[in-house]
Design a protein around this nucleic acid. Structure first.
Length: 735
DNA sequence: ACCCAGACTTAGGAGGTGGAAT
DNA sequence: ATTCCACCTCCTAAGTCTGGGT
C-alpha cells in the first residue's frame, strides 16, 4: 500500500523564505561505525536533504591547532549605546497584526509609576480581579471559561486510569487567564521549605577495601568519600581520560591526610575495584528489593516531595523544578572540558541563600546550621541559590515548567517569535542590502545574521579560554570552522561548516550560499590564520543591539524559535494527508518534528540497543507479512468455495477471513510505519525542539484538526507544561 | 564604555519504571 | 513470573541575554 511511498518520501519542498539550501550533512563522530540515514525534512529548500550521521558514544574533539590561535578571546569593541526602542527602529513598529491580536495582555509599563509600592500592589490586586482592559484574546478565553463553568468542573481531570488514585483533586489554575505583572516584579508572596540536601556520606563497610600499589589501605574518611566518587565511575569512559584523571587526582590529594598524600602519588597504582563492585551490588540489591520495601521507599520520597517539592507563590501551590541540592561528586563537563574530574564540593546550608517574601515562614536550616543569607527579592524567580565551586557559577532552585512564572515566559517567547514573523521579510531584505555595505562591521553583522536565520545557528557568545570546552556559535566562529568551495557536488558557492557547538555536539553542514555571501566570507578570511575569528568586528552584544533596533525585544535566539515553529507548521501542512490513518498521521507529525530537530542540530547518541531492537522489529514484520500472505490465500480459497457452494455458511467464512486479513494488514502497516520512524530517528533527538522551540499551539491545533489524541504527541509532563496552549488553541491556530 | 555576575533557557545523558513480550 | 525495552523523569551542564557597577 502506501507504505513504500512512505518509506521513500522525497524531502518535502518548501519555500517559505525563498532561500536555497544545499545538501545538509551533519556528522557526529561516535562509535567507529558509519551509517547513512535519510530523513524526511528540511526547510526552506527545494533540494532533497540527505544526511550522513556518524555516531559516537562520546563527544567529539576536532583537531585544532591551538598554537595557531592568534585571536584574542576578549576583544574590546566600540560599544554602541542602547537606544530606547523607537528612535532607530528599522522596522516601523508594525508588529504583525495577528500577533497583536493574540499577544498576551500586558499592562502598559508605566501606568502607575508614581504610585507608592503598596498602592501599586493594591492596584495590581484590583487589576487581577477586574481585568479592566480586556483584549480579544482574553475575551475568547473568558468565553471558554464561561462555557467551562457550566460543565461540572471535575471533567477537567480525565480520571487518569483508576491506577493512580490520588490524582491531585484540586482543579488546575488557569494562570493564562489572569493579568501579568509588568513592572519586573515576579511575585508578591513566596513561601517554601528550603532545599533538600544530599544525604550525608556513609563510610564503606570494612570488607570493601581499597588498594594502593597492591596493598590494602584504609583511607581517611574524606579521602575515602572522594575515592568512592571515582570508584563508582570506573565503567565510565571519563575515568580513562587524561585530563579527568589528572584533575581528579590533584583534587583527591587535597582531601588526603598528610600521610596518604605522601604515600599515594600515582593514580595508576590505585585499585578501586572493590569500591566499584560494592556500589554495583548495592544497586542490584535495590533492584531486587521486595515490593513492600520498594513501596516504603516510594512513600518516603513522596512525602519529601509533598513538603519540599512545592511552594506557595501568590496564593497558589506551585511545583518546584529541582528542590534537591546537587550532591558532591566529580565534575562531568561535556566534550573536552579542561575541568572534568574536579571535585564538586558538598553544599552546606551555610552556602545557601534563601529567597522568600517578607513575613512568610522562613525555612528552617538543618539543626546546628544556618543559612548563608535570607533574601526577599521579588524581582527574581528563584527560591534558593548557592555558588558552585568548579566554575564559580550560581545555581538555583526554581519552579517547574507547569508554574505560572515559567509558563508565562514560555508563552511570551512564542509571541515574540510570532512578532518576528511579521517583520522577518523586512529584516531579510535589509541584511541582504547590508552585504554590500561599505563598512566591514555591517557586512559581518549581515552575514552572521544570515547564518543565524538560514541555518538556525546559536548566537555564539565569547567564552573564557581554559575554563570550558572549546565550542562556538555564530559570532564566535573561527576561520578554521568553515571551508569555502567555489564549486562542490555540482553546486556553486558552497560553505562547509565543521565546528563543535553547545555541549560539544558537532555541527557539520555543506550549504550553498548566495554569491555575495560567499564573496564576503572570502573577504573576512583574508590574511587571517585558522584560529582567528571569522567575524572579528562582531560579537553577540553588537548583533543583539542591532536586532533590538529592528524589532522590540528581538535577539538572536528568537530566530531559532521562529524558524523552528514556522518549519513545523509548514511541514505539518505538507506532510499530513487527510486520508491517512492515525499511525500514518503520527508518522507525519514525527517527520515534521524531525525536520526541526535536524534544522536545530539536535542529536543524540544512538540508543545502545538500537540494532537489536531494530532487528526484533524486523522479525515481527516478517512474521506479520507471512501471516498476511497466508490469510490472503485463505480468502481466495474461501471465495472459490463460496462460488461453488453458494450458501450462507460459506459467505460467512469469506466475510470472516476478509476481516482478519484487513486487521492483519493494518497491523503490518503499523509495524512498518513504526520501523520507518525508528530508523529515521536513530540519532535525532525530538524532545529538545518539542520542549523548547515549537509553539505548542501548532501541535495542539494539528491534533484538533485531524482528531489525533493529544497524548500521541505530548506525554503527561508535556501536556502539563503546555496546558495553556491546549486550553487556548483551536484547530485553526496559525503561528 | 565595558565588564562581569546573575538569571534564566536550552541541552543530552543516566537511570528508573512500567507495560509488553515471552 | 521474568525479561526486555521504550519512554519518561531527573539531573545538571552549557548556553543566551540582561543589567548593574565602575
Amino acid at each position: 500500500m502506501r507504505l513504500s511511498m512512505l518509506k521513500n518520501t522525497p524531502t518535502p519542498k518548501t519555500t517559505n523564505t525563498g532561500m536555497e539550501i544545499g545538501t545538509s550533512t551533519r556528522i557526529a563522530s561516535r562509535n567507529t561505525r558509519t551509517r547513512i540515514v535519510s530523513a524526511a525534512g528540511v526547510r526552506n529548500t527545494a533540494t532533497m536533504t540527505t544526511r550522513t550521521l556518524l555516531t559516537a558514544n562520546t563527544r567529539v574533539t576536532l583537531t585544532k591547532k591551538n598554537t595557531e590561535r592568534t585571536r584574542l578571546r576578549r576583544r574590546s569593541l566600540p560599544h554602541i549605546k542602547k537606544e530606547p526602542f523607537d528612535t532607530h527602529s528599522f522596522a516601523p513598529k508594525v508588529v504583525h497584526e495577528d500577533a497583536i491580536k493574540k499577544a498576551p495582555v500586558k499592562r502598559p509599563k508605566d501606568d502607575s509609576d508614581d504610585e507608592p509600592f503598596s498602592s501599586k500592589l493594591e492596584m495590581m490586586k484590583k487589576v487581577k480581579l477586574e481585568k479592566p482592559h480586556e483584549k480579544p484574546l482574553e475575551k475568547k478565553a473568558k468565553k471558554r471559561k464561561a462555557e467551562d463553568d457550566k460543565k461540572p468542573r471535575i471533567k477537567e481531570e480525565p480520571t487518569d486510569k483508576k491506577k493512580k488514585k490520588k490524582e491531585e483533586p484540586e482543579q488546575k489554575w488557569k494562570w493564562w487567564e489572569e493579568e501579568r505583572y509588568t513592572d519586573g516584579i515576579k511575585w508578591k508572596v513566596l513561601e517554601h521549605k528550603g532545599p533538600v540536601f544530599a544525604p550525608a556520606y556513609e563510610p564503606l563497610p570494612d570488607n570493601v577495601r581499597f588498594y594502593y600499589d597492591g596493598k590494602v589501605r584504609k583511607l581517611s574518611k574524606s579521602a575515602e568519600e572522594v575515592a568512592t566518587f571515582f570508584g563508582k565511575m570506573l565503567d565510565h569512559e571519563y575515568t580513562t581520560k587524561d585530563v579527568f584523571r589528572k584533575n581528579f587526582f590533584k583534587e583527591w590529594r587535597k582531601e588526603m591526610s598528610h600521610e596518604e598524600r605522601s604515600v599515594m602519588t600515582n593514580l595508576s597504582k590505585c585499585n578501586f575495584n572493590e569500591i566499584n563492585e560494592y556500589f554495583k551490588t548495592k544497586s542490584e540489591e535495590r533492584k531486587n528489593m521486595s515490593k513492600e520495601e520498594k513501596l516504603k521507599i516510594r512513600q518516603e520520597n513522596e512525602s519529601i516531595v509533598k513538603t519540599y517539592g512545592f511552594c506557595l507563590m501568590d496564593g497558589h501551590r506551585e511545583k518546584i523544578g529541582n528542590f534537591k541540592i546537587e550532591p558532591p561528586g566529580l565534575f562531568r563537563g561535556r566534550g573536552d572540558h579542561p575541568k572534568q574530574g574536579m571535585l564538586k564540593r558538598r553544599v552546606r546550608p551555610e552556602d545557601v541563600i534563601i529567597n522568600c517574601s517578607k513575613g512568610s515562614n522562613i525555612p528552617q536550616p538543618p539543626t546546628g546550621h544556618r543559612w548563608k543569607e535570607i533574601r526577599h527579592d521579588n524581582k527574581v524567580t528563584w527560591l534558593c541559590s548557592w555558588t558552585e565551586n568548579i566554575q564559580g557559577q550560581v545555581k538555583y532552585i526554581m519552579l517547574n515548567a507547569t508554574s505560572r512564572i515559567k509558563g508565562e515566559k514560555d508563552w511570551q517567547k512564542y509571541e515574540m517569535a510570532r512578532n518576528l514573523k511579521g517583520v522577518v521579510d523586512k529584516i531579510r531584505s535589509q541584511y541582504r542590502e547590508d552585504w554590500k555595505s561599505k563598512e566591514m562591521r555591517i557586512r559581518q553583522r549581515a552575514v552572521a545574521l544570515y547564518f543565524i536565520d538560514k541555518l538556525a545557528l546559536r548566537a555564539g557568545n565569547e567564552k573564557e579560554e581554559g575554563e570550558t570546552a572549546d565550542t562556538v556559535g555564530c559570532c564566535s566562529l573561527r576561520v578554521e570552522h568553515i571551508k569555502l568551495h567555489p564549486e562542490l557536488d555540482g553546486q556553486e558557492f558552497m560553505v562547509e561548516f565543521d565546528f563543535l557547538g553547545k555541549d560539544s555536539i558537532r555541527y557539520y553542514n555543506k550549504v550553498s550560499v548566495e554569491k555575495r555571501v560567499f564573496k564576503n566570507l572570502q573577504l573576512f578570511m583574508e590574511n587571517k590564520q585558522s584560529g582567528d575569528d571569522l567575524f572579528d568586528r562582531l560579537n553577540t552584544a553588537i548583533l543583539n543591539k542591532h536586532l533590538q533596533e529592528l524589532m522590540d525585544g528581538l535577539t538572536a535566539k528568537v530566530f531559532r524559535t521562529y524558524n523552528a515553529s514556522v518549519t513545523l507548521q509548514q511541514q505539518l501542512k505538507e506532510l499530513t494527508n487527510p486520508d491517512d490513518n492515525l499511525a500514518a498521521k503520527i508518522l507525519s507529525y514525527n517527520r515534521a518534528n524531525r525536520a526541526v530537530a535536524i534544522l536545530c542540530n539536535h542529536q543524540r547518541a544512538a540508543p545502545k540497543t538500537f540494532e537489536k531492537s531494530m532487528a526484533n522489529l524486523q522479525t515481527k514484520i516478517d512474521a506479520k507479512r507471512e501471516q498476511v500472505l497466508l490469510t490472503r490465500r485463505e480468502v481466495k480459497s474461501a471465495k472459490a468455495d463460496y462460488k461453488v457452494r453458494r450458501d450462507e455458511k460459506f459467505r460467512k467464512i469469506v466475510e470472516n477471513k476478509r476481516k482478519t486479513l484487513e486487521r492483519l494488514e493494518e497491523q503490518l502497516m503499523k509495524l512498518e510505519v513504526q520501523a520507518t520512524d525508528k530508523e529515521e530517528n536513530k540519532q535525532i533527538a525530538l524532545g529538545t525542539s518539542k520542549l523548547n522551540y515549537l509553539d505548542p499551539r501548532i501541535s495542539v491545533a494539528w491534533c484538533k484538526k485531524w482528531i489525533v489524541p493529544m497524548e500521541k504527541v505530548y506525554n503527561k509532563t508535556q501536556r502539563d507544561k503546555f496546558a495553556w496552549a491546549i486550553d487556548m488553541a483551536d484547530d485553526d491556530y496559525e503561528f
